[in-house]
Amino acid sequence: MGLEAKLKQDGYMTTTIDAIVGWARKSSVWPMPMGISCCAIEMMAVGGPKYDIARFGSEVMRFTPRQCDLMIVAGTVTYKMSKVVRMIYDQMPEPKWVIAMGACTSTGGMYRSYSVVQGIDQFLPVDIYLAGCPPRPDNLLNALMLIQEKIGKTRARDYDDIKQPEIISL
């Protein structure tokens, strides 16, 4: 729409706080790249020049959970790793979202074995399940767009009674 044009026209605009906050949040999602295995390489490819996640305002991959609001769990989560994933999730500030990238993260996928968690939704709330083994980078971008849509619809009052959970140790 062109913010400048609007400003020039009448110098003010009306909106709700929710709408503007949601718009700001969704346009600068900072992902926490929880790269575990093969999907992490495709996640790197999304950061690379060809797919370029920067077009969606999410190129700021931060390796510290304190600065992130979207966790992309990319790769097979084993029982040993599950505590770590949960700990990092707990360290992220609210509000936060989770993408389960790839088949083995979502359901255990091809790894029907003793050490693999059969779906991270057993210990994490997941917003988007992403199909593919690994998903193509375009598919991850699609998931990002879906999550942006979801973030855009959130309202401040959704987070009224949120408590920061205690941090569990390994």
């Binding site: 790793m81 074995s113 003793y114 050490s115």
Partner: peptide, 11 residues
């Protein structure tokens, strides 16, 4: 090690 032990040999 072992955070990505997926049990390949058992499978």
């Amino acid at each position: 090690l072992g955070y990505l032990h997926r049990g390949y040999e058992k499978m």
